Amino acid sequence: MIFASDLDRTLIYSQAFVSDYPASVKAVETGDYYSYMTENAAELLKDLAGRLLFVPCTTRTVEQYRRIGFFQNELRCRYAVTSNGANLLVDGAPDAAYRSDMLKALAHNCAAGMDILQGFGRLSGAGWAGAMRHADEAFYYCIVERDNVPLDELAEFSDWAAKQNWHVSLQGRKLYLVPRAVNKWSALQRVLEMAGDDKVAAAGDSLLDLPLVQGADYAISPAHGELYEQYGGYQLDLHARSQSQSHKRSQCYLNPHPKCWRRVFTESFKDLPNNKQGACSRRHWIFTESSGLAAGEEIIKTVMQLLRPIE
């Protein structure tokens, strides 16, 4: 089995999540930026990685991924998906053949990045968004003033970008503009071919993780983030029905960390990348009971429980 997991806000967390956490934590990234796991989660992940193939799948660039000392020194991974799927690392080095195929897909299947930036420029003139950064020549992101983001206008821009085969995702204070061709599931499919495995458990918290979650046989998401807001809480669904259409569309850009509770369901997905026949596939998707640092630990424990029947 392969366990493919997003990192930030799924398995590892920034300082903002640490201040009120009651148990011991471990700094897995140090230097200019710090990221943390619970001490127990770090040990459990090392144990789990000895029993299956663990593949980090992150929106971080190659350079940003290499800043995580835990994955450079304590838990070296044979494969790692970075840049939201634009790069595949094999034994720490980018896979040139995969990168070449990805660039071809970008050129043929998505609108040009400059066109997307021009559209966004008409929206961001009020100064709530910082300068756009081009990440590994694959996608764009910027830092935003969260309280000043025009949510309705951003939702309209997102609708337009989707027609150009681009995703828009707001995570914390970062706004991402990502071509649909650049996704974690596409990179993981190459890993499946290389590893000769076809069973996948996946974890992720944001809309950028949705292709990964949909493609996996079993998926886990934390009780926070974009996926939880849109799919994880019945109370959120009921609340949305009482709002205006404009307000509903704006809700997808809010990350308020709602009350945590567990929801387990099996969903039918059509025309998934791994569904060659185009028929409905049954996928099992659960949300954790906990949020923040504790959710990362709960995700790892859930995968360990899933592994027992196989062993």
Results as ranks from 00 to 15, higher is better:
7 L>K: 03
186 S>H: 15
13 Y>H: 15
212 L>I: 01
146 R>G: 01
3 F>T: 00
61 T>W: 03
263 R>M: 07
282 R>M: 05
181 A>N: 10
283 R>W: 03
287 F>A: 09
27 A>H: 04
292 G>L: 04
6 D>L: 11
243 Q>L: 15
243 Q>S: 10
255 N>I: 06
76 R>E: 04
196 G>K: 03
90 V>D: 02
89 L>K: 01
142 C>T: 12
296 G>V: 01
306 L>D: 06
17 F>E: 05
242 S>R: 14
212 L>C: 05
26 K>P: 02
257 H>E: 09
272 L>E: 04
45 L>K: 04
34 Y>V: 12
40 N>C: 08
203 A>F: 08
255 N>C: 08
287 F>K: 10
34 Y>N: 09
134 H>E: 10
197 D>R: 10
266 T>L: 10
97 A>M: 02
73 N>S: 15
185 W>Q: 14
162 A>F: 07
217 D>Y: 14
87 N>F: 07
126 A>K: 13
136 D>I: 09
253 Y>H: 14
17 F>R: 06
175 L>S: 11
39 E>T: 08
189 Q>I: 01
87 N>S: 09
55 V>N: 05
26 K>Q: 12
263 R>A: 11
282 R>G: 01
157 F>I: 01
161 A>F: 10
27 A>N: 11
296 G>W: 05
295 A>I: 03
152 D>N: 08
60 R>I: 02
225 G>A: 11
217 D>E: 11
93 A>T: 02
275 N>C: 12
241 R>E: 11
164 Q>K: 15
98 Y>W: 02
85 G>N: 05
160 W>G: 01
203 A>W: 07
254 L>E: 09
213 V>P: 06
49 A>S: 15
23 A>M: 00
240 A>I: 08
191 V>K: 12
27 A>L: 03
137 E>G: 13
162 A>Q: 11
208 L>F: 03
185 W>V: 02
46 K>C: 14
285 W>D: 00
160 W>T: 01
125 G>Y: 10
231 Y>P: 05
90 V>T: 02
123 L>I: 00
265 F>C: 10
226 E>D: 13
236 L>T: 04
31 G>L: 04
190 R>E: 09
31 G>A: 11
11 L>T: 03
161 A>W: 11
118 Q>K: 15
234 Y>N: 06
213 V>R: 11
287 F>S: 08
231 Y>G: 04
92 G>K: 00
180 R>P: 00
246 S>M: 08
187 A>S: 12
177 L>M: 00
191 V>W: 04
277 Q>T: 00
72 Q>G: 04
138 A>R: 07
